[in-house]
Simulated assay, not measured.
Amino acid sequence: MTATADPGVLPALRAKARRTVHPEPTPCSHPDTVLAERDDGTVVRHADTVAKAHAPDTNPTALTLRLTVATDNPDILLAPLHPTAAPLHGRLITFWPYGTPVDPEAPEHAPWEEAAILLARLHRQLAPPGLPPMRGPVKAAQAIVRLKAAAPHHPATTSILRAWHTLPAWARAEAPMSDTTTLCHGDLHLGQLVRNPATTGPWRLIDVDDLGVGVPAWDLARPAAWYACGLLLPDEWTRFLTAYQRARGPAVPAQGDPWPVLDVPARALTVQTAALAIAKSTASGRPLDDAQRSVVDACDRMEGIPPELVGGFPK
Rank of each mutant, 00 (worst) to 15 (best):
D75P: 06
V102Y: 03
H82T: 15
P104R: 06
T84R: 11
L119Y: 10
H82F: 09
I76T: 13
V69G: 03
H154T: 07
P87T: 03
I144G: 08
I160K: 13
A116S: 05
P97W: 03
R135G: 15
T94L: 00
F95L: 09
T71H: 11
I160G: 07
G130R: 10
P128H: 08
R124F: 00
P97N: 04
T94I: 02
Q142E: 14
A116G: 04
L161S: 04
H82Q: 15
R121V: 10
I160M: 06
S159H: 13
P101V: 01
W112A: 02
R135T: 14
L122G: 07
P155Y: 09
T94A: 00
M134V: 10
P152K: 08
L67P: 06
A116E: 03
P133D: 15
P155D: 05
P132T: 13
A120H: 09
P107R: 02
I144A: 06
L92P: 01
L88Y: 01
A150H: 14
V69D: 04
P132E: 13
L118Y: 12
A140C: 09
G130M: 09
R121C: 07
A106Y: 00
A141K: 15
R146E: 11
A86L: 08
Q125G: 09
P83N: 06
P97V: 02
T158D: 11
G90C: 01
P155H: 11
A141D: 12
A141Y: 07
I76G: 02
P133T: 15
D72H: 12
L78G: 10
P87C: 02
F95A: 01
G90W: 00
H89G: 05
V102K: 08
A120D: 08
L77H: 06
A86W: 01
N73D: 05
T100C: 02
A140N: 14
G130S: 11
H109M: 04
A115N: 11
H82W: 10
L81G: 15
A85K: 05
D75L: 04
I160V: 13
R91P: 00
Q142T: 14
L81Q: 12
A86C: 01
D75H: 12
L88M: 01
L81R: 15
A141P: 08
T100G: 00
F95I: 01
W164V: 06
P152I: 10
A86E: 13
L147C: 10
K139M: 12
P128R: 11
I117C: 04
T71L: 02
G136S: 15
H89D: 14
P132Q: 14
A163D: 05
A116W: 06
Q125W: 04
R146A: 12
T158A: 10
I93D: 00
W96M: 02
P133S: 14
H89S: 14
A151D: 06
S159M: 10
R162M: 05
P80H: 09
A86H: 09
